[in-house]
Every structure is written in C-alpha cells, then in structure tokens.
C-alpha cells in the first residue's frame, strides 16, 4: 500500500473523531493530531485501535506513544506493513 493510500485511510479514520471536519481538509503529514485537530488523548487511543483494525496490525504502547502527527501514524503503519 502506498503512502498516499495509507494517508487517505488514516484521514478517513480521523474523520470519525475530529469535531471540526474543516481542520482535516488542510491536513498534511505534519498535522499534529492532538494540537492541530483538537483530538484528546483518549480518542487518540481509539484512533490507534481503529488503525489496528483497518490495517490488520498491532501497535504496542511504546509505538502508540510515538504517534503525534498524521505522518507518524502513516510511517508506523507503513513499517508494520513492510
């Protein structure tokens, strides 16, 4: 799966958790999930669990702690898929 495809899927997942969908329209790899998208830390856990389901992978605590931006999530999923 390409980076673009993973990014699009991650953004689709985020749609269910971001209150202001306009924030997602200008989202980039550098977009900070907590600060820029106003997602709280508990919902970030939900997002990561959803990513596990969608991409068929498992993400442990340490890996989850490293996810701050959309790019971090995409990179991690890409590494897991490789």
């Amino acid at each position: 799966m390409s980076v673009e495809q993973i990014t699009q899927k991650v953004i689709d997942i985020l749609r269910g958790y971001v209150k202001d969908s306009a924030l997602l329209e200008k989202a980039t790899q550098e977009t900070h999930i907590l600060k820029d998208l106003k997602v709280n830390s508990a919902r970030l856990v939900d997002i990561i669990i959803k990513c596990e389901d969608v991409f068929g992978t498992s993400i442990d605590d340490d890996e989850a702690d490293r996810i701050a931006t959309i790019g971090d999530a995409v990179l991690l999923i890409q590494q897991k898929a490789a």
């Binding site: 856990v45 939900d46 990561i48 669990i49 596990e52 498992s58 993400i59 442990d60 605590d61 989850a64």
Partner: peptide, 8 residues
C-alpha cells in the same frame, strides 16, 4: 488480548 484495547 493486550495493549491499548486492554487499557480501554
């Protein structure tokens, strides 16, 4: 199970 699901 394990990880984040257990915590949740």
């Amino acid at each position: 199970g394990g990880g984040l699901r257990v915590q949740r």
